[in-house]
Simulated assay, not measured.
Amino acid sequence: MTETTHATETEGAAPKLTMRDRHRIMTRESIMAAALEAFGERGYVAVTIDDIVRRAGIGRATFYLHFDSKAAVLRELRNTRMTVWSQQDAPRGGTSGRPSIRAFFEKVVDFYTSAPQLYMALHQARAADPDFAAAHRATMEANVEEWIRNDAMPGATEAQIRLAIAMMYTMVDSFMHLWLVDGWPVEREAAIEAMTDALHATMR
């Protein structure tokens, strides 16, 4: 009987991690931390697998046990470092939806301003890596399906939902680029209000 199936475990409890499991998790986290540091210093395009493994203190073979490319590391960083959004966090349409839209923009703006290296790496990857750009579009397509399924914009057509989602992504990306890349002095509250007003008008 293995450590993860010991008879004294309570039913439904999470399985215990073996030493090998813990080492694997620590190595994976080390790779992601090294990659984020490298992306922040050199930019996504310039960073190589060798840069990442050197910073992480591992060999290339170990890297490829966990990831098949630097794009895969960046996708994992995006998925694990971003706040887990609940259904309640999604912006809602209709005349009373403005508070939910503002709360959404506040959350996403605060996340990216607290993780500027991640934003910049994601922005660069979408511009330089066709596979990463395709994955980003797939995420947007999933948003369209989710908004339709959850009736996020009551009475809206699919075309109207697509427009709202395009505006949402574009506004966030544009303001983040102004703040984090160009250093343009735009006041946070004013920016959130402007994005909220624009998306609310589209989602009514």
Rank of each mutant, 00 (worst) to 15 (best):
M32C: 08
F175K: 04
D151Q: 09
M195E: 08
V45M: 09
V45C: 02
M153C: 09
G93Q: 09
G93V: 01
M32P: 04
T2Q: 09
G57Y: 00
R78Y: 14
H23K: 11
D129L: 07
G93N: 05
R98Y: 06
M203W: 03
V53M: 02
T157H: 06
D151Y: 04
T4Y: 11
D21C: 09
R162G: 08
G40P: 05
V47S: 00
F175P: 01
M167I: 14
L122M: 04
T139Y: 15
E11R: 11
I192H: 02
L65V: 11
A166I: 07
L122W: 00
A33Y: 03
G94M: 05
R78K: 08
V45Y: 11
R24S: 13
Q160L: 12
T27H: 03
D21L: 03
F67I: 06
V109T: 15
L17N: 02
F67V: 05
Q117V: 02
L180I: 06
T80V: 04
M171C: 04
T170W: 07
A190C: 00
R126S: 04
F39G: 07
A194C: 13
A7E: 13
M82S: 15
R137T: 08
L178Y: 11
D151N: 14
I52D: 01
H23V: 07
I49A: 12
G40N: 02
N150I: 09
Y112M: 11
Q117M: 04
G43Q: 14
V108Q: 11
V47I: 01
A194L: 14
M1K: 08
E193W: 01
R102M: 06
E11Q: 12
A71V: 00
T170G: 15
T202E: 14
